[in-house]
Design a protein around this nucleic acid. Structure first.
Lengths: 329, 329
DNA sequence: CGCGGTCTTTACATCGTTGGAACAACGATG
DNA sequence: CATCGTTGTTCCAACGATGTAAAGACCGCG
């Protein structure tokens, strides 16, 4: 692998002149510039990023800390973050926490200014006192408690209200919710939106219809739906806090011969790619994931230069996609 | 951020002694060791990986080059690769190519020994002459032509044969295939397995029943299925070269009121997480993804030390998961 | 012809770490 | 007590790049 020294020797100039050419700096005589460029070409020189970053005091990496890549929402988001980061010449380092407190703490501990320039976090279990970060960071989603860190995401209360309002507009009276969670900020907000929409419609809040989910996997949705269908007075609609829960719920419905949407209308959240292709296809809240990824990366890019002064809360748009799980074709 | 120098000053020893303690090297007097350890604790020292790797001549990263994270198979695989890489103290850098030739060439070009120690590739379009890599690499899947690079993956011919044999055993006579592709190695092999199973069963090969797919997304499966159902003599079973194609195909079937599995049996390939939860659930070939990830990383770990002598072809196990898309409950 | 100023290049130190040589301390040995 | 081998520590150089300061080249001007 060629180094600056090799190129310099070949071009008959000093190392620094080569460095200047490579970085487009300063004034270089046309004649020297040409010779250096030929030498660069001939040696196939590529800068050693480790050395460059050591000198420059940056790393060229940002961390993306998320629960699990096998969850479609995070996989899709990760792809978009990688694309957005490329525009700022950043490489993305993905850390999986599996949604556990220890996993998240480990990931955070491994994040130092020597490893990454900044971090994007999707925490689920972290406590307030854990947010002692040594690099600029931005959080996706929300947290139950106030933490001193900027945030990017949609308005979860409004989105949940929109979803449930849609169910109300279809004439549903017993609307359930799947995905309540004691420590998850987004869960609390979506539940709040759910309650608001019920109140607005004059429907009673029945705690029996609110089912918790510890993880947001398909299996949890399936289990929760079983519980709901076993009620003496089962729901005629269900709002699931993510698409995976909804897919699980629809699977249980199919197994029990409950017709969707006729007997049971289902709304999800996230608009995973798969949701457009299920049978029936899934009505869902579609956050603009590309906007989230871009906003998060751009925010970090700003912050990487200046110290973290004011905290931001960037609201990205969302929409309700009405599909077959609420309105039959 | 504390450096070795800071720790050394605090402990009253030389920088190298601290380095020795950190790396567990050599002989250090118990008394000094204790002092150093206390100083490490007090300063919260974390090694600067950039500097360490610069000195050691490694980078601490491996690249994972894949088409797209939004494809569940690759997302799941990426998660497993990250986990496997952690065991060798490797961080994973994910590069998306979107399956294009230029994307793949770009990704390969950016891979140098200064950036990554090794690479895992899932190429789809690369030509033979592109495989001039400067770091040890391993390929997942297969390539149409012989390339000088080690491979990890399942026996695609055997797997495809197994899938089609299963359809034959159900008494299906007109078995279609979705996913033929001119340049994709895996496609050719799966097609070969398909033909072998037909021949074995004494069924005729009908080229009308083999539908190409340029991408392996759900939409392509849906479109292909439409073409098949529009035939004068439509199939009674279809073998899809991945699960996404199968999900798309089942979606089309549902839209056309074709009953799965009664009128049409469907088999997929990859065993995406979502395939167990579709309605009907999808019969599929399940490669052992964890084994693939581990084998690939382990192979690179061996090769990272020694130069690439012999080429390996590691076969990982697979199984056929029979679900509702071929056998009704 | 000398001077000041602009352009261009170079030498050197430095980022944080580790390998190797050199050196110091020590008890054991002859 | 000189010598030796072992053990423990320090100093120095190096990895590859870049910032700084200073030196060198070159110009026009008085």
């Amino acid at each position: 692998m060629a180094t600056l020294k090799d190129v310099a020797r070949l071009a008959g100039v000093s190392v620094k002149t080569v460095s200047n050419v490579v970085n487009g700096y300063s004034f270089v005589k046309p004649d020297n510039r040409r010779r250096v460029e030929e030498a660069l070409e001939a040696t196939g020189y590529r800068p050693n990023l480790g050395a460059r970053n050591l000198r420059r005091g940056r790393t060229g990496f940002i961390a993306l800390v998320l629960p699990e890549l096998s969850i479609p929402y995070f996989a899709e988001l990760a792809g978009l973050v990688i694309a957005a980061a490329q525009e700022h010449e950043w490489n993305v380092l993905i850390e999986q926490t599996f949604g556990t407190l220890t996993g998240e703490r480990q990931a955070l501990a491994s994040l130092g200014p020597h490893l990454v320039d900044a971090a994007i976090l999707s925490p689920e279990a972290l406590h307030v006192e854990d947010f002692q970060l040594s690099v600029p960071a931005v959080m996706l989603g929300e947290h139950a408690v106030d933490v001193p860190i900027s945030r990017v995401g949609i308005d979860n209360v409004a989105a949940a209200t929109t979803a449930v309002r849609h169910l109300v507009s279809l004439g549903r009276k017993r609307i359930a919710a799947i995905g309540a969670h004691p420590h998850r900020g987004t869960a609390a907000l979506r539940l709040e939106g759910y309650r608001a929409a019920l109140a607005e419609a004059g429907l009673p809040f029945d705690s029996e219809l609110v089912v918790p989910a510890l993880n947001y996997h398909r299996a949890d949705g399936a289990a929760a739906m079983k519980a709901l269908l076993d009620l003496r007075n089962p729901p005629d609609a269900v709002f699931c806090f993510n698409d995976l829960l909804a897919v699980g719920a629809m699977r249980t419905a199919a197994e029990r011969f409950v017709r969707v949407p006729h007997d049971l209308a289902v709304v999800g959240f996230d608009n995973n790619d798969e949701s457009a292709y299920s049978s029936p296809s899934l009505t869902t809240i579609a956050p603009d994931k590309a906007a989230i990824a871009r906003a998060a990366v751009d925010l970090l890019h700003q912050r990487a230069g200046a110290p973290d002064v004011a905290l931001d809360d960037v609201q990205t748009p969302f929409s309700l996609l009405v599909r077959e799980s609420t309105v039959s074709r």
